[in-house]
Design a protein around this nucleic acid. Structure first.
Lengths: 225, 225
DNA sequence: GAAACCATAGGGGCTAACCCTCATTTTTAG
DNA sequence: CTAAAAATGAGGGTTAGCCCCTATGGTTTC
């Protein structure tokens, strides 16, 4: 493993599993000019360290306590432009990848491919402004792009605050009656909102909305309003 | 880290994340008489190795390709009585712990506590027939035992084959009409089955069945009929 | 062969959610 | 200030699923 440049690349790793962190560190430091300068077991600690110290690259686990990888990236990329971020995750779901790219994250590496992929990812991401995504995920994306897929992100943004509030409660398995009692509004209003949500999300049929919230619980939980 | 006995304990580790495996190995082998004799990145490989070789302890990730930890344990504990099994997992859900204990698995360690817990677990499990469960999970279990919990496993077994078949299809988001067309039976029959399933599972109210299948998808997928 | 169980099927009632349309008030934006 | 957008409410219709009942033919079991 040789690198053309002698410059030391300062790396932060954040993952809540100490054993994984250990393994990751030893893989990374097998390359001479890579140095792991800080380890975090949660997103908040990583965020603080990055704000207060100069580092080149942050490798963030997506699933972490306190702040997850998404949160950290969201807070960071506005202020720190030189910083590169690589996500480590177990999820190969497409929707994640989209979200990641929106945040300005440069790398997306699947944990099960980590040994092979992480060094490639660091190399590509740290030398220039290029993107690295685990090959297996790229394969996924290609398959995805062949079929025209409805863009839920866009649709979510077309929802009003009331609609989002109600969508959230539907995802928590609340009936229209329960929602009306929680929000101190008429049951009829709730039903009207439901109806409008269905229209905006292009959902039709019995229970379509609840089924949608089940399938997209992740996105709904992350919804801000 | 001193051990009273000089006997070498032969350990197999199975986890689909190579970096985690590396880290785990180095933690384990920091103890003189622990030796990792084989690493697997999937359950099937682990199963085969264990069948063909004499090892003392298998540390299995619950989430693995081909065969998961549950499958491996299920196949093994009948034939190999001297073998000890420790599960490594990210899930602290109670239902998993119950399932694990039923299989004769001796250890249950959460990945986020792995560095501290795994060596304790190996020590306790390998010296005698004792059980080790990550303290944080034990805390969970205590809380759980105070409330009387409905036993779904029992209820599942009370379902007839037709009912199970239909429950599976409901979990796949099929309507009664669709199910009737798939099974070549009247829609009314499907509704009767639904009704009986609701009675057996003690579910009432609109959509309760579908909500149940969402919450218990894991169990339904494992259902045999 | 009676009892029990199962799969099948239908009648009929009820409700929650979906689906229109319309109307009023409040908030927001130009 | 005015126009658009959002939030609230309602009337009225359809449907899927829940729930109660009965009933018939087929197994299994004692």
């Amino acid at each position: 493993m040789l690198e053309p440049e002698g410059k030391i690349i300062k790396i932060l790793i954040a993952d809540d599993h100490p054993i994984f962190r250990n393994g990751l560190k030893s893989v990374i430091e097998s390359v001479a000019n890579y140095s792991v300068v800080h380890e975090s077991d949660n997103g908040e600690d990583a965020f603080k360290y990055i704000c207060e110290n100069e580092i080149d690259l942050a490798i963030l686990d997506v699933e972490m306590p306190i702040m997850d990888g998404f949160e950290v990236a969201k807070q960071l990329h506005v202020e720190k432009k030189s910083l590169k971020i690589i996500f480590l995750t177990m999820f190969k779901e497409e929707r994640f990848v989209n979200k990641v790219l929106d945040l300005g994250v440069k790398g997306y590496v699947l944990k099960e491919n980590a040994v092979i992929d992480i060094l490639n990812a660091i190399k590509i991401v740290s030398t220039g402004n290029k993107l690295y995504i685990s090959p297996i995920i790229e394969h996924y994306l290609e398959a995805r792009n062949t079929k025209a897929e409805y863009n839920y992100k866009e649709s979510f943004e077309s929802l009003t605050n009331s609609e989002k509030k109600i969508l959230k409660l539907i995802s928590e398995n609340k009936s229209s009656k329960e929602i009306s009692e929680l929000l101190f509004i008429s049951g009829k209003t709730v039903e009207n909102h439901r109806s409008n949500i269905c229209k905006k999300l292009e959902l039709t049929g019995s229970n379509a909305l609840f089924k949608f919230t089940v399938d997209n619980k992740f996105l709904i939980d992350k919804m801000h309003f």
